[in-house]
Amino acid sequence: MSRSSVHSPHGPENEHKTMQSYVVGFILSLIFTFIPYYMVVNEVVSGTALLATILGFAVVQMIIQVVFFLHLGRGPKPFYNIVFLVFTVVAILVVVGGSVVIMHNLHYNKTIPDQTKSLINDEGIYQIEGTLTGACRGQHDNHQVTIKDGKVSPLYTAAKQCDTLTFINEDDGTRKISFGQHENHGSYAGNTEIEVKKGRNKTITLSETGAYQFHDHLHHETAGVFTVTK
């Protein structure tokens, strides 16, 4: 690994051992390459189980090569090399695993276009080189829509772009406010469904212009309209 790889006075016996370790490592690596290959080609198991198995074989082969090819742990001062390797493996697990989990979770909750809209709005950069990005410039008026006894008041809200709209739920049940028609849900400014628990309220920023219908997904007769103009 370290000093031994260049300087130490290797005896022939030592060299023989090193040679042996390369041969063993090579054979084991071959085996651990062919088994998963065979398993995939013949679909011995399927789905997640197969994926987990081949990943397991990859990890084992990595360990084999680290031990037999890189000879980690055999040098005179291997401690920090091992520490760094372990540290890096953990970091890689965090980076790859974290990304996969987080991105999966985000996509489960929101589509990519909707996320992009929220993202741009959250950056607060409303134009670049004169092209509008869709984000709001500053904050303006607040409008309120109260839902009580299944009725929306006011039924119609007229707002300017970048105003905010607050849904207030004064009923007993949870309201799931969706946009568009009941059969054909749409989204507004990155929001697909806004859940307002009883007695609570939620605020959205009206960053997109146009006329929009909204309704309670569970009681679609509870509905209203808002328009956003520039």
Partner: peptide, 8 residues
């Protein structure tokens, strides 16, 4: 020592 450092 230099070799050791460089390898590390």
């Amino acid at each position: 020592e230099a070799t050791d450092r460089v390898m590390f």
